[in-house]
Design a protein around this nucleic acid. Sequence first.
DNA 1: CTTTCATATGAGCAATTGTTCATATATTGT
DNA 2: ACAATATATGAACAATTGCTCATATGAAAG
Lengths: 118, 118
Amino acid sequence: MDICKEKCINEEKVHQTLESLPPVEEINQMVDIFKALSDPTRLKIVLSLLEQEHCVCDIAVLCNQSDSAISHQLRVLRTMKVLKNRRAGKIVYYSLDDEHVGALIEMSLNHVDHAHSH
Amino acid sequence: MDICKEKCINEEKVHQTLESLPPVEEINQMVDIFKALSDPTRLKIVLSLLEQEHCVCDIAVLCNQSDSAISHQLRVLRTMKVLKNRRAGKIVYYSLDDEHVGALIEMSLNHVDHAHSH
DNA sequence: CTTTCATATGAGCAATTGTTCATATATTGT
DNA sequence: ACAATATATGAACAATTGCTCATATGAAAG
């Protein structure tokens, strides 16, 4: 918090912004959600599950990836509480476990659609 | 598109979902935004710039990082068109260049606040 | 024009990530 | 009990990432 001397720092502005920042804990949780969606395979998985559940095998087809690769990524998303699963015999069905993820994806679609007018 | 035989695949459901998926191009752009926000330093930078512009030096203080590290990350965010900058003498001020990023962050804060009730 | 200060950049390196391959577990059918 | 099938997991490895350190650029002041 001790903003040092002899530098180009605008202490006033820094202090203002410092107060407005969320606690570290929250920032890290936000990072985790973004990280979950920041890989093409994982994003495709989540996109695939927006409307209906799917089994591992179907998700692998949808993502053009091996069952194993998908299983690894499903574990990541499960651990992050983005997805949940239910077992039906040999088959395991995955579905969304986070109501907010849909909204996040919607926003990112907005970003992409209204492409930059630079 | 040729969904193979002899497998546990539910072709019906896979086809439905396949049609609902955005084109690869769009998915990659979405991934890029999420990637931009999926690092604690970069997210903190963007959070710091939500309300007002800051110079590189101030951002470094706000993020507890070296000027160099911040400069590297600012370049990443500039390249991704998340930030823009303006020069005032020796000092360079950075600010948001993407109206949608604010909304994205808002959504992720929602996610964090209404913490999972599992 | 030389020095100083703010920022940018390149090389290098440790840490992390996403996949493959081999193997394990779980459930069903024979 | 055993084989077959769906999913999960661990080790290994290449690729990517985010930082540091040294150095370069660009602007103001002496």
